Simulated scan of single mutants.
Amino acid sequence: MGDLLSIDEVAELLRVPKGTLYQWRHRRKGPPARRVGRHLRYDEAAVQAWLRDDKAA
């Protein structure tokens, strides 16, 4: 597993509000996230892969 990003870092990287990430997670639409304790964390490589795949679609 690569570096783990917080929801704030992913929101900044994708230039979307945090609320959008929460909605995507609820709808199983956005980059994969997992809970680490109380916090959501995103694998940086998985976010980059999701971004590449989303742009290709």
Rank of each mutant, 00 (worst) to 15 (best):
K55P: 00
V47N: 03
R15L: 11
K29A: 12
D3Y: 02
L51W: 03
R35D: 01
H26A: 13
L40E: 06
A33V: 04
A57E: 07
V10E: 10
D53L: 12
V47Y: 04
R28F: 01
I7M: 02
L14C: 04
R35W: 08
A45G: 02
G19Q: 11
Q23S: 12
R28E: 11
A56H: 03
V47D: 05
D43S: 04
Q23A: 14
W24P: 01
P17E: 08
R35G: 00
A46D: 14
A33M: 00
R27M: 08
K55G: 07
K18P: 07
P32H: 03
L21Q: 02
V16P: 13
P17D: 05
L14D: 07
R41S: 07
G37S: 07
A45D: 15
L5D: 05
G2C: 11
E12I: 02
A46G: 04
W24M: 10
K18G: 10
P31Q: 00
T20R: 14
V16S: 06
D53M: 10
R27D: 09
W50Q: 08
A46K: 10
D53I: 10
R15P: 01
Q23L: 13
Q48K: 11
A11Y: 09
L40N: 06
R28P: 00
P32F: 00
A57D: 03
A46C: 04
G30V: 06
L51H: 09
H26R: 15
A49K: 13
A57G: 10
P32Q: 05
M1T: 15
L13V: 12
K55Q: 13
R34G: 07
T20K: 12
G30Y: 06
R41L: 09
K29W: 09
L14N: 11
L5P: 01
G30H: 07
R25C: 07
L5F: 05
E9Q: 12
G30T: 06
D3A: 14
K55T: 11
K55R: 13
D3L: 09
A56R: 15
S6N: 02
L4P: 00
H39M: 11
R38L: 08
W24L: 04
K18T: 15
G19R: 14
R41I: 09
A11D: 13
E12R: 07
Y42A: 10
W50T: 11
L51T: 15
D53V: 12
D3T: 14
P32E: 05
K18S: 02
E12A: 14
R15H: 13
L51G: 02
G2K: 03
R28K: 11
Y22V: 14
V10D: 08
Y22S: 07
G2R: 10
Q23P: 00
L51D: 15
D43E: 13
A57F: 03
A11R: 05
A49Q: 13
R27V: 10
R41H: 03
G37T: 09
R28C: 06
M1P: 08
R27L: 11
D8M: 00
H39Y: 10
Y22L: 15
Y42F: 15
R35C: 07
L5K: 02
L51V: 15
L14Q: 10
D54N: 08
L5T: 03
R28D: 09
S6P: 04
R38M: 06
L40M: 11
W50E: 12
L14T: 09
V47P: 05
Q48S: 11
R38W: 01
R41F: 06
